[in-house]
């Protein structure tokens, strides 16, 4: 079973843990450099990027996370996590890991009243057709370097991008039942980087049917034919 670390300084790390459990991975909370040992991948969750950045400094985690990335193991950042992965941030800039050749504009859509959900643009990568993307005070990624590949766009903007082993997502796949983005992370961690497209069978986005976070544990969605 893949062991996926989830940075748990602050934010919706429990929602990432639940998403990882749904796809048959084993989530591990990360608060110290030692927690990174033996992990197959790392998630930087949504939350407040200022708060998480200060925690990274206090816990001296910046370099250990950079070394984790340098080891070739995959990282995924969602929303605040995507800001932290970027080369730089603007609009009240925060320090970043500079693992993704892009600039993150914080709160680029506005305040919470401008938060929204929207489907992936039709010209997104084929595996992500119909993906419903939830944006909460989301950043926008701009000035993407030539080595950054855009996988999902919404309203013409890149919202899920990949550069080698680094995935950055400006929306919150952990808030919906659709596990395709987390399965991409998992498949990247197995060095099956290209096999995720076209194999996704659960192509429907499933809005949560409950008024809030669901704790119902669900069987792994599977569909990859992988051994756990």
């Amino acid at each position: 079973m893949a062991r996926i670390g989830v940075l748990s300084i602050q934010g919706d790390y429990e929602r990432h843990e639940q998403a990882l459990e749904r796809i048959g991975a084993f989530p591990v909370r990360v608060l110290r450099a030692a927690d990174l040992a033996g992990l197959d991948a790392l998630v930087l969750p949504g939350g407040e990027s200022t708060t998480i950045a200060k925690g990274l400094t206090r816990l001296s985690l910046w370099d250990p996370i950079r070394e984790f990335a340098a080891s070739g193991r995959p990282l995924m950042g969602t929303c605040a996590g995507a800001i932290l992965l970027a080369r730089e941030s603007e609009n009240h800039p925060v320090p970043t890991l500079a693992l993704l050749d892009a600039r993150a504009v914080r709160n680029a859509y506005g305040t919470q009243v401008d938060s929204f959900a929207a489907p992936a643009d039709p010209d997104s990568a084929p595996g992500f057709a119909g993906l419903r993307c939830v944006f909460i005070r989301a950043p926008v990624l701009t000035d993407l370097g030539s080595s950054v590949e855009t996988l999902v766009k919404v309203e013409g903007r890149p919202v899920l991008v990949r550069q080698g082993n680094v995935l950055a997502c400006t929306f919150h796949p952990e808030l919906t039942e659709d596990t395709r983005v987390h399965r991409l992370l998992l498949s990247t961690s197995r060095e099956e980087g290209s096999s995720w497209t076209g194999r996704s069978t659960s192509g429907t986005s499933t809005p949560t049917s409950s008024p809030g976070p669901s704790t119902t544990s669900r069987a792994p969605t599977g569909g990859f034919g992988r051994t756990a």
Binding site: G46, G47, E48, T51, I136, P211
Partner: peptide, 20 residues
């Protein structure tokens, strides 16, 4: 109303404030 997208976005922000 309790399953609306509007409420999902609102609860989404509350989720982001957790542990803080």
């Amino acid at each position: 109303r309790l399953t609306s997208e509007s409420l999902e976005l609102k609860v989404g922000l509350a989720e982001m404030l957790k542990g803080g």
